[in-house]
């Protein structure tokens, strides 16, 4: 059975691909984003050629990593949790450059408002 986090990531990628502005933002932004659950399965969001794909496990050298318990990551990717608040509370860890952080946050804002 697929985990809630996997389903959340799938839902997120579908929404990302459906949003024209997001797709435009993905131009020249090929990244491997590790979604590392501290208490469950981890995944990789692969962004390449304006397409986002969910891969099981941690693949290749990462550019960005999001580390948190599964429930937090699921909440963030379904739009139920505010990532900025989770980060400030120390429940969500972001690893990556400032620019990538802003871009990812901009995408999340476009998708979830």
């Amino acid at each position: 059975m697929e985990s809630p986090l996997y389903l959340a990531l799938q839902e997120f990628t579908v929404k990302a691909q459906a949003d024209k502005t997001v797709v435009k933002m993905l131009r020249d932004w090929d990244r491997m984003i590790h979604i590392e659950a501290t208490d469950g399965d981890s995944y990789t969001l692969s962004v390449a050629d304006r397409r986002v794909t969910v891969l099981e496990g941690l693949h290749a050298e990462r550019d960005i990593a999001l580390v948190a318990p599964s429930a937090t990551l699921t909440g963030v990717f379904t739009g139920a949790l505010n990532p900025a608040r989770e980060f400030a509370a120390g429940r969500l860890k972001f690893v990556g450059s400032n620019k990538d952080e802003m871009k990812l946050d901009a995408i999340v804002q476009l998708i979830w408002g």
């Binding site: 505010n82 900025a84 608040r85 400032n98 802003m102 871009k103 901009a106």
Partner: peptide
Amino acid sequence: SRLLYAMAREGILPKALSRVHLRFFTP
């Protein structure tokens, strides 16, 4: 400016401060 942005993203400051420039990705 990132302090203001982060507080706006958390909902502590007005939401307008959390806008990101969609070309330069700066707050």
